[in-house]
Each structure stands twice: as C-alpha cells, then as structure tokens.
Amino acid sequence: MTTVTHSIGRTSPSEAEEKLVRVYIWEWPVRIAHWVIFLSIVVLSFTGYYMYAPFITSRGSGAFLMGEMRFIHEVTAFVFVAAFLLRVYWFFKGNKWARWRQFLPIGRYQWQGFIGQLQYYLFVRRKPEFRMGHNPLAGATYSMIFALMLIEILTGLALYNRILGSKVLGFFVGWLPMLISIRYLREIHFLIMFAFGAFVIHHVYSAVLIGIEERSGLVGGIFSGYKFFSESRIKEDASHE
C-alpha cells in the first residue's frame, strides 16, 4: 500500500489532516468488463435503434446498410456477452469489493448504508455513505442493471436464434419464444435499451458527485483500479468484514 497526500474536493477538518492511502479496489477483470460493457452498449444501442427505425436509408444498389448494422449488432452482442460472463465469474473470484455480496443490501451494515445513501440523495443527509467499494444503494442499482443485461442477452439471443436456428443456442433460449411471443420479446429488448440510457446518465452523474464528496478519486478508480482513503476509513471498512 502506497500512501500519498491528496487533497481534492471539500474535506472535513478532521480528515483533511489525515494521510490518504492508495488502495487497489477494482481489479483488472472488473475494469475490463466495465469498459467493454460500456462500449458495447453504446454500439448495440446505436445499431439496435437503427434496426428499429432505419433513419439512414440507401437508394443505391449494392448497399447493405441494415445487414451491416445487424452484423455489427450481433458481433458486438457476443463481445458484450463475453464481458458480462467475465464479470459474473469475478463475482465469485474477485476481491471483496467485486464479490456478489456487494450487490445485495443484506445484513444490517449493508441495509443501513442503503438507507443512508438514499437519505443523502434526497437531501435529508449531509454526507454520502462511506464505503471503499461502491455503496449499498449503488450496489442494488448495479444488480438491477446486471439483471437487465441478462434479460437483454436472453431476449437478444432468442431473437438471434429465430434466424440462426441453432440447437445449442436453442437449448439456452429456445424456451423463451414459447413463453413470450416474438413481438413482446422485441419490445422488452427494445425498452431495456432505454433503461441503460437512463442508468448511464444517473450513473455518471453520481460517480462524479460522490467522487467530489469523498475526494476518493472515484472516477479515476474505474480506469486505474485505485481509490484513495484516509486510514481511519480503511479501518472502519475492515471492521465490517
């Protein structure tokens, strides 16, 4: 653990004097998964929206615009699935901040953090909840986002398999169109795209906001893996192992 002095953002008088410690929070699989997921969602949303509303059309012959969009969508979809699976693997293999427990508000400590953070967002409380990983409210939001990703993948694969007709894929998603007709699968697949859009707005905003509040270098953390904490906070976090 390296220690450096650090003083961005507003600081509380007591903490301002403390040394900040650089802690490795987000291991590479978390970071890789995060950014691959982000980039592929951008590409999938663009190509997906085009499939819904082909806003660019081609009059010439030899054009293959929709086909290209679909192709990009499908290839990107598999990159997305790979990143998703990597992240899921890391739910079980990763450090304590990456583990699945971080995503569910279970236990008193988690639950209080959840409520506390909610109060912070509703201007009831002055300061956000302190956690070295993400706070329990964010964790709960992320688990919903992961669930939506899973649904998006399942519906997407089911739509894809209407064309591919693969038995292997059919084993995983063949039951879906039997349960929900294709028209609603498309609709679910389409609507979740907007849920991602809404999420990103909130997500980036709160990352910046909390980063400023905590002066933990939070935004940088998802690039580098490191965040900065006072030693008292690290101790506190450890007390809740």
């Binding site: 082909p54 660019i56 059309t57 009059r59 054009a63 929709m66």
Partner: peptide, 9 residues
C-alpha cells in the same frame, strides 16, 4: 431490401 436499408417511404 430490408438488409440493404431500402425501404418504401
């Protein structure tokens, strides 16, 4: 034509 992005408008 769908794949080519050629649509009746």
């Amino acid at each position: 034509h769908y794949d080519a992005g050629q649509f009746v408008e």
